[in-house]
Amino acid sequence: MPSTSTKPVEDSVKKVNDELAVGSDLEFQHKWWRFTRGLWIFFAAVIVADLLGCFGRGPLANATARTPDNGIVVKYERIERYGAPSILRIDFGQPAIQNGQVRLWVGESLVKTLGAQRVIPQPDQSIVGAGGISYVFPISSTPASVKFALQPVAPGIYELPIRAAGSPPINLRIFVMP
């Protein structure tokens, strides 16, 4: 016959008024209430930080970078979110426009990690090489701008170098939240 293991019943559950076995652990419960109070303060801080844009999509996340000669002005989100769409906009000033066109070079992280989905407007030319992509945009008048629709493919901190012929380079640092 198979044996079944047993053990005696122990009356180890703490009682209330020596009659009702409840097993309350009030010492733990007081610690837990203190912990949850701290946790709610932390949650409130998280919400405030989020509204401010510390985790992207807010005023603190929006950034502008420009070359000293204002040849290129980049409006972007310094804090992006993984998989969330965003727009990186580049405005071109007179120094960047040569012979009615802008020759723009951006680092490969634009496509590889920041997940550029499309360029608006479409460039006349796009050439892959030298650790990045070169675009040629015909421009008839200023102000002129192009937009890159981004959708980051992985969390992390990424450098994004941007350069236009005739204007100094800009190096952006973008943090992608998980």
Binding site: V16, N17, L20, V22, G23, S24, D25, L26, F28, Q29, W32
Partner: peptide, 17 residues
Amino acid sequence: KTLGLIIDGTPLVLLKN
């Protein structure tokens, strides 16, 4: 036991005497 208390909590008396 402590993890059990964290996850499930502990019974609490709401009314007595």
